[in-house]
């Protein structure tokens, strides 16, 4: 079966720095995948390659078998990929309703867009905020508004970059619940480094280390693996290289 999203030997080099180095992975339809790794492991660069913000130096990205390497962000989004950035990226001067409508207007007429927007806001528990200006909302609410914009067009795949950044313990727990709920309808890739959060949501985990995939396995096995612990503690793990089959 063709994977929903697949990378083949994806590399992104900045001069001599090999931020991502020959990463191959495949995400199936409906999967919930976590990409983890300590700071500097290359997961954010990998995220930016997937979302069209960086053009990879080498390798291929395929979406449903179609080669989308080097596509601009808007073209990736149009394929049915919802993207949430680490720092909420929002329309601060607009209200919540207009923000979500913008996510829907490209595909639907105004009446349908409006009813879908209301449904999504309701689903995320922020229907009361429709008339609020986004720039005046608190951090947690802003995260939810961005999520509403990402989820509203019913993307096949949602890519989330550190969705719990800056969140309290309760907010993190609620986000974990939300991601599990979203996973019933969408495939999800979560880039994260919070181990507690990974434990709460993950089924399959891919561990990045120095631009390579260190290992890919079930969450329990990954979290129990001494190499992963060493990587997080900053100990030398060798040999650092692409995972051997």
């Amino acid at each position: 079966m063709t994977a929903l999203l697949a990378t083949e030997n994806l590399s992104m080099h900045f001069g001599g720095v090999r931020a991502v180095n020959g990463v191959s992975l495949a995400i199936a339809e409906g999967e919930l995948r976590c990409l983890i790794g300590p700071n500097g492991a290359g997961k954010s660069t990998f995220f930016k390659c997937l979302t069209g913000q960086y053009k990879p130096t080498a390798g291929r990205i395929r979406f449903r078998g179609r080669d989308v390497t080097g596509y601009d962000s808007f073209a990736i989004a149009r394929l049915g990929v919802g993207i949430k950035t680490q720092v909420p990226s929002l329309f601060d001067g607009l209200d919540v309703m207009e923000s979500v409508l913008l996510a829907l207007r490209r595909r639907h007429n105004e009446a349908i867009a409006r009813s879908r927007a209301l449904a999504v806001l309701d689903r995320l528990g922020i229907a009361a905020l429709v008339r609020h200006e986004v720039g005046r909302l608190g951090h947690g609410q802003r995260q939810l508004v961005e999520l509403a914009m990402v989820v509203a067009p019913e993307p096949d795949l949602i890519i989330l970059d550190e969705p719990t950044a800056g969140m309290s313990v309760e907010e993190t727990a609620r986000t974990a619940e939300l991601i599990r709920e979203l996973n019933r309808r969408h495939a999800i890739v979560v880039v994260e480094h919070d181990m507690q959060f990974i434990r709460a949501i993950a089924k399959t985990v891919t561990v990045f280390h120095q631009g390579y995939v260190l290992m890919e396995d079930s969450a329990e096995r990954v979290l129990a693996d001494p190499r992963v612990r060493d990587v997080y503690l900053g100990k030398a793990v060798g040999p650092a290289g692409p995972e051997q089959p």
Binding site: S73, F74, L102, A103, R105
Partner: peptide, 24 residues
């Protein structure tokens, strides 16, 4: 119009508009 509202969105946040599928 739809064009104008999207243009205002682009002004507000180019990255977000692009991530929603608008060719800014």
């Amino acid at each position: 119009s739809r064009f104008g509202r999207a243009a205002v969105a682009v002004k507000e946040n180019e990255t977000r508009a692009e991530l929603l599928g608008y060719d800014v």
